[in-house]
Design a binder for these strands. Structure first.
Length: 403
RNA sequence: GGAGGGGUUCCCGAGUGGCCAAAGGGGGCAGACUGUAAAUCUGUUGGCGACGCCUUCGGAGGUUCGAAUCCUCCCCCCUCCA
């Protein structure tokens, strides 16, 4: 096991805030003395199994804890999912079946184990202890926190002030998450800065239950591909771990230039010196940021796939977007007939969800076949096979005759 | 329990009898521009083989030649008083 200072150095890198560093040092010290690893908690909602780069900011930090010999517990909040984290607008949550939860959990594991060591990761479902709680115990839990303190939470305060509904059930969310820490006797809990409130509540709850409060480590929120809002699945501005290489590469390239630096910092293992270098280059007007972004995109694809796939992805990107040519590889669609109305064609290959949308695309000049723009929405085309249909900038399909 | 305010398209939000498939903004999509992007500009944004028709403004009825708009009942949300 590494010394206190060495451990602190590693943990300190890239986080937003540690509450508190002194407590953390104390815990690490006693762990070194006793040889007992610290329990590091991290939780996730089971309803959204698409892990994206935003999550990896925390997951990578967990990986560091594992390397330091500590015990990482990944909690799947199947119980809390019934409530839904009150941060969003989504109030009514659909109840997930046991089977769905298990399925999502599997998907989760598959993804996080691309970063974490499966041997060293404990996976828990919080329904295990939550379902066992009696009403009396729940009342007891609710007696440990006040409305005033709940309303300190930004979302709650906001919604309360602007006249948005808040249910009592939502107040339970932070309490249950806190109770999870009690059940696990968590030493440390990791989360995004948006989780700070919940993580801090857990400290109070643990104290109420006679435990030493967990150390809270918040990680910066990754800005999504739109360059403004945090990366999230519901906003659609995310790069998923499961995105195929070309997509991972392409999405990274579509990120605003300002994100190049934070992405290198939070998502890759580049050293401090390299980061400095990147910062310098970005400030240099002679340097084309595209080159750095390509490095970033390639690096990410290499991390989650391999160098060859990264190479291919880069080549394809250059072909489509820089040279504006057709990609080498594209999916093939077998036409239902060899004489087809353009509108029908677009809906058939699912590049448009309705005839109206298809018409719009044609009228806007988004549609071309073998490089020739189609502008007449009434056109019927005769195919002989091998044609390439392009819609917009990035949708391609190769057409073949027959089903 | 009482009094008042409100529910409109993906989101926010205007509209209080026909000119309403519904202003404006956001987002999305497309086009132009560009060193990839972003930004910007322009267009578009319910459906239908389509210059006409069908469905939409919390739900169900009703008034009317005609309803997002008026009436009745119901559901939901918010505020204040208790």
């Amino acid at each position: 096991m590494l010394s206190l200072n060495e451990q602190m150095d590693i943990i300190n890198r890239g986080n937003k805030e540690i509450i508190s560093e002194d407590e953390l040092a104390g815990k690490i010290e006693s762990s070194i003395q006793t040889g007992i690893p610290l329990t590091v908690k991290w939780g996730a909602d089971p309803s959204a199994p698409d892990i994206h780069l935003g999550h990896t900011v925390s997951i990578r930090k967990l990986g560091q804890f594992q390397n330091l010999g500590h015990r990482v517990v990944f909690i799947i909040g199947d119980f809390t999912a019934m409530i839904g984290d009150p941060s969003g607008k989504t109030i009514a949550r659909k109840h997930l079946s046991r089977q769905q939860v298990m399925q999502n959990a599997e998907t989760y594991k598959q993804q996080i184990f691309r970063i974490l060591d499966p041997e060293k990761t404990v996976v828990e479902f919080n329904s295990r202890w939550c379902n066992a709680l009696s009403f009396e115990e729940i009342l007891n839990l609710t007696s440990k926190y006040t409305i005033a303190r709940m309303l300190e939470r930004d979302d709650f305060e906001n919604r309360y002030r602007t006249g948005q509904p808040i249910t009592i059930m939502e107040f339970l969310y932070p309490l249950i998450q806190g109770y999870d820490s009690v059940a696990l006797k968590a030493d440390i809990e990791l989360g995004g800065t948006d989780q700070k409130f919940n993580l801090l509540v857990a400290r109070d709850i643990q104290r109420e239950y006679g435990q030493i409060p967990q150390v809270v480590i918040t990680m910066p929120l990754l800005v999504g591909t739109d360059g403004t809002q945090k990366m999230s699945k519901s906003l659609g501005n995310y790069i998923a771990l499961d995105d195929p290489p070309e997509q991972m590469y392409g999405k990274t390239m579509s990120v605003p230039d300002e994100l190049i630096y934070p992405y290198f910092e939070l998502l890759t293992d580049v050293t401090g010196e390299e980061l400095e270098q990147i910062k310098k280059l970005l400030a240099d007007p002679k340097c084309n940021p595209m080159e750095l972004k390509k490095q970033l995109a390639k690096r990410l694809v290499t991390m989650y796939y391999d160098p060859q796939k990264a190479e291919t992805a880069e080549r394809e990107f250059d072909t489509i977007f820089r040279k504006k040519e057709t990609p080498e590889q594209m999916s093939v669609h077998r036409l239902s007939a060899n004489l087809l109305w353009v509108i029908k064609l677009l809906t058939e290959v699912k590049f448009a969800s309705s005839n109206s949308e298809a018409r719009r695309l044609v009228q806007q000049g988004a549609v071309s076949i073998d490089g020739t723009r189609i502008s007449d929405p009434e056109l019927t085309i005769k195919f002989k096979g091998g044609e390439v249909l392009k819609v917009g900038k990035k949708k391609f399909v190769s057409l073949e005759i027959g089903c």
